[in-house]
Design a protein around this nucleic acid. Structure first.
Length: 580
DNA sequence: GCCGTTTTCGGCCCGACTGTTTTCAGTCG
């Protein structure tokens, strides 16, 4: 784990412990903000710490935190964290993740009932200690107990690959409820995050009661967490929480903006509103009349509320795509013209039955034609990927022949004979140059030795990216989300080398990978590099992964111009010939 | 703890829902 990720985790723990001990909420938020800033930082933390004023120049890091970061660099200890951890049991931090338990309650459970972690909480419920506390009724205890069970069996976060299809299906089902005129998703799903905590739905309905009733009684609901006049939350199949909010049509934009987030983006917009004597909430943008109570409750009319565009415009800001509403994104800069799924003309990394795919060359080509692609690269595994039935040089030669034959029979599409060539731990490629030169396209990917040191990984990937016959580095880190971190190369150095040699870096669109990730895409683009979005399809359905790759690219500020899959075919073919 | 086009003090987003208690605290997003 990099320095900044490790230290970010410590600041987060510090914030949680402070919260439980009742520290000032703003100081808690400040610590969380430092953690977020560190999480987003991609350079060399120790180097920055030694640069006078370097840390302080980062938004959210003041004098105090800067000094503590420097001290951590010297000693490996975060001042304050150890002290507070000595007083407060670490296990309490995990309790904050239990739905319905906040810092106040966790603090009370600890002080008044001796609870120190999930196990002792369960004991305290069972032996009646909890029931003896004030403001701890039967219903509250039942809810805590239920949340404990849920937390024990549910996955922490859901892959966007599961959440997006589910949201699509839910919206389709609820759209048919009488009175519903619009339903859409918001939240981290709309921002295209790689994992989703829960799914937020937003609807316009003339009959909210009916819609909420349909929502809370739909098939798969295992618990109704809340059900009010305009808002409801359910747990679906004991796996994921779904929130629904119903609003009138004229407030949809304000609500969509609000529930899409991110939280930091909302705060920035509210701040902008305040500076202009305006007040922004989920009902609209109102003139600030100095009254404390919500303006909509006093019959005030908003100056903007129906669409997001109206609100940004009234704040004199450019509309931002949801993918660029994270804490790292400003609000004033006009966003770039982001790439869309429709811009993509081809997939340049796919597999067939020659290695570990499920379809023949022809079946893959026909699927690509159905999806409107102008070309398709067939890139089966190289010989070292034995588990994936990788091709040795002889099999590869005949495979190239076979690809050319199918290509000649299909005028609708151009097939490129390629290979996904293993990058060995030392940076050498799995085929000789003589073989590589026969291919139309070479995707070089790391598959083994994914735990090597950052220095070795950097050298390995730079060597591959500098090879004159390599066009694309496939899934550069080899990570699997939530399962393995993969390589941790010096991404800026890798991106600079790739850009210098005209080698594209892949966004592998498989939702389990999304590699490069959004942050790394930004670095690649800052270095002037090229990106390739590919699905790594092993069967027809895998082409659907494309949208996850595009969302990740958009979160990384990718435009069609910088993505070789969006270029006109002639330009791509010219580029592929380069240097060979 | 951080920040500042009203800057070194004073403010820091805002509202729905629940449970338990009679007016609101806590949690969530």
């Amino acid at each position: 784990m990099s320095d900044q990720r490790e230290l970010a985790a410590q600041f987060d723990q510090l914030a949680a412990l402070m919260e439980i001990t009742g520290a000032n909420g703003f100081r808690v938020s400040a610590a969380r903000r430092v953690a977020r800033v560190l999480q987003e930082f991609d350079g060399d933390l120790r180097e920055l710490a030694e640069t006078p004023g370097g840390l302080e120049a980062m938004d959210g890091i003041g004098k105090g935190s800067a000094e503590r970061i420097r001290q951590w660099c010297r000693t490996g200890r975060l001042e304050g964290r150890d002290r507070i951890a000595a007083e407060v049991p670490d296990g309490l931090i995990g309790l904050l993740d239990i739905s319905g338990l906040g810092p106040k309650t966790v603090g009370r459970l600890w002080r008044e009932a001796g609870v120190t972690d999930t196990a002792t909480l369960r004991e305290a419920i069972n032996d009646g200690r909890l029931a003896s506390l004030p403001r701890m009724g039967a219903k509250t205890i039942a809810n805590i107990s239920d949340s404990l069970d849920f937390a024990a069996k549910a996955a922490q976060r859901t892959s966007i690959g599961a959440a997006l299809p589910l949201a699509t299906q839910l919206c389709a089902a609820l759209a048919s409820v009488p009175g519903t005129t619009r339903i859409d998703w918001a939240g981290s799903l709309r921002r295209g995050c790689e994992t989703i905590g829960d799914i937020d739905l937003l609807a316009i309905s003339g009959d909210p009661t009916c819609l909420i009733a349909a929502f809370t009684t739909q098939p798969g609901v295992t618990k109704v967490l809340a059900a009010g006049d305009t808002k409801a939350s359910v747990r679906l199949n004991d796996q994921i929480q779904i929130d629904l909010r119903v609003v009138p049509e004229q407030e949809f934009g304000a609500a969509w903006l609000y529930f899409t987030g991110s939280k930091e983006h909302n705060v920035a917009l509210r701040h902008r509103a305040q500076q202009r004597n305006l007040r922004l909430n989920e009902y609209g943008l109102f003139p600030d009349d100095g009254e404390e109570s919500p303006p909509q409750d006093r019959g005030k009319r908003p100056i903007a509320s129906q669409t997001e565009q109206d609100i940004y415009e009234a704040l004199e800001l450019p509309w931002r795509p949801p993918e660029l509403r994270e804490s790292r994104d400003g609000i004033t800069e006009p966003p770039p013209d982001l790439i869309t799924v429709e811009d993509i003309c081809r997939d340049l990394h796919t597999h067939t039955t020659a290695s570990d795919g499920h379809l023949s060359i022809r079946d893959m080509a026909e699927e690509a034609i159905r999806r409107g692609f102008d070309s398709l690269a067939i890139t089966d595994h190289s010989r070292s990927s034995v588990q994936a039935n990788g091709l040795d040089a002889d099999r590869l030669r005949s495979h190239i022949e076979a690809i050319r034959e199918v290509d000649a029979s299909l005028p609708e599409i151009t097939l490129l004979a390629g290979s996904e060539v293993d990058i060995h731990a030392d940076g050498r490629l799995d085929y000789d140059d003589e073989i590589l030169a026969m291919l139309d396209i070479v995707v070089a990917s790391p598959h083994a030795a994914l735990k090597q040191s950052p220095d070795d990984a950097t050298a390995r990937l730079i060597e591959a990216a500098s090879h004159p016959l390599v066009h694309i580095i496939g899934h550069p880190t080899g990570r699997m989300i939530g399962r393995r971190p993969g390589l941790e190369p010096d991404m800026r150095a890798l991106c600079a080398a790739a850009a210098a040699h005209g080698t594209a870096l892949e966004i592998n669109a498989n939702p389990k990978r999304l590699d490069l990730c959004d942050r790394h895409v930004r670095i690649a683009l800052e270095c002037g590099g090229l990106i390739s979005i590919n699905t790594d399809a092993h069967q027809a359905g895998h082409f659907d992964f494309l949208r996850y790759g595009v969302l990740t690219g958009r979160r990384g500020t990718l435009t069609a111009e910088a993505c070789i899959n969006a270029w006109p075919l002639s330009r791509l073919l010219e580029w592929l010939d380069r240097g060979s």
